[in-house]
Design a protein around this nucleic acid. Structure first.
Length: 280
DNA sequence: AAACAGCTCAACCGCCATAGC
DNA sequence: CGCTATGGCGGTTGAGCTGTT
């Protein structure tokens, strides 16, 4: 037996909302309370005189009609917050959005997919240690569940101790040749078919991320001992996997510096790197 | 001016989590 | 404990807008 639909799809209006519908929804929620419990989204359309699915009403309110919604372009500070948090927790848009009052998960997601991702692909990553972090100073952590907060304060404050081999510019747009002087391995050595190539930044990993990469002693080959989704740059000396956020994992395989590491950190390098790059 | 391509973003879809019975 | 209803979320879609040829 299939799942029962949330509404009668035959009798609900779909597509863009008219100003009249917006007004009806807004007026109803303002007079009856706009929190989910008070509203009961499923039954709201009927009460508000709307021929819409309850979910659609909820989405319209949360993403557009709420009075505290911030419309308009994102600031650089917000860009920075999004990039930092994306690197830390992946595509948890609602959590990321919760750090930015007035922004919705949909907004952040759209902004990431249409602009920020391209910005990064455009080779905007700069020297790792050159910039002060911004999240610590600007993020609003109030109301954020403890588990969702950045857990390592050094991530937000420390800019020192960047290993020299990490002092490189990774230009994701031009591939491996971004900084050949500091790359210890040539592209042939770095490339591993099991890593699915270097050009696909769209891979995504969610939940656990069981990556273990071990470099041979000579660094002449890369062998992975489990599957790796997505594509990363490998640094021979430190063995880290450079992930620019297009498939970044989280949970126990991502440290608080935005780097992805396998379960066996001894195999893939230290966890003491202080930051992962500056995208601007 | 028209045709086409690329981009944006609101809206939808389907899955998952959880509360309540 | 299992089922159902509902809320919430991330991924995807497509209409409309904008830029380019």
């Amino acid at each position: 037996m299939g799942r029962t639909p949330c509404c009668d799809k035959e009798n609900v209006k779909r597509g863009p909302w008219s100003p009249e519908e917006d007004a009806a929804l807004k007026s109803y929620l303002q007079s009856h309370g706009s929190d989910g419990t008070a509203s009961n989204w499923i039954h709201l359309p009927k009460k508000a005189g709307l021929r819409r699915c309850g979910k659609s009403c909820r989405l319209r309110w949360l993403n557009y009609l709420r009075p505290d919604i911030k419309h308009g372009g994102f600031t650089e500070e917000e860009d920075s917050i999004i990039c930092n948090l994306y690197n830390q927790m992946g595509s948890r848009w609602s959590v990321i959005a919760s750090y930015m009052p007035g922004r919705t998960d949909n907004d952040v997601k759209n902004y990431w997919n249409t602009k920020l991702k391209k910005k990064l692909l455009g080779g905007k990553i700069k020297n790792i240690s050159s910039r002060e972090p911004t999240v610590a100073n600007n993020a609003n952590f109030s109301g954020i569940p403890e588990a969702e907060k950045p857990q390592d304060s050094t991530f937000w404050t420390s800019q020192t101790q960047v290993p020299s081999t990490l002092q490189m510019l990774y230009d994701v747009n031009s591939g491996l040749s971004a900084d050949n002087q500091t790359m210890s391995l040539n592209p042939d050595q770095l490339y591993n078919p099991k890593l699915s190539g270097f050009s696909d930044f769209g891979a995504r990993s969610r939940g656990s991320y069981s990556t273990t990469v071990s470099l041979s002693q000579e660094g002449s080959s890369v062998s992975d001992s489990s599957s790796i989704a997505g594509n990363r740059y490998l640094d021979q000396d430190y063995g880290f996997l450079m992930d620019y956020g297009f498939g970044v994992a989280y949970d126990n395989n991502v440290n608080h510096y935005g780097m992805c590491f396998g379960d066996k950190t001894s195999e893939v390098g230290p966890t003491g790197c202080t930051d992962f790059g500056d995208f601007f």
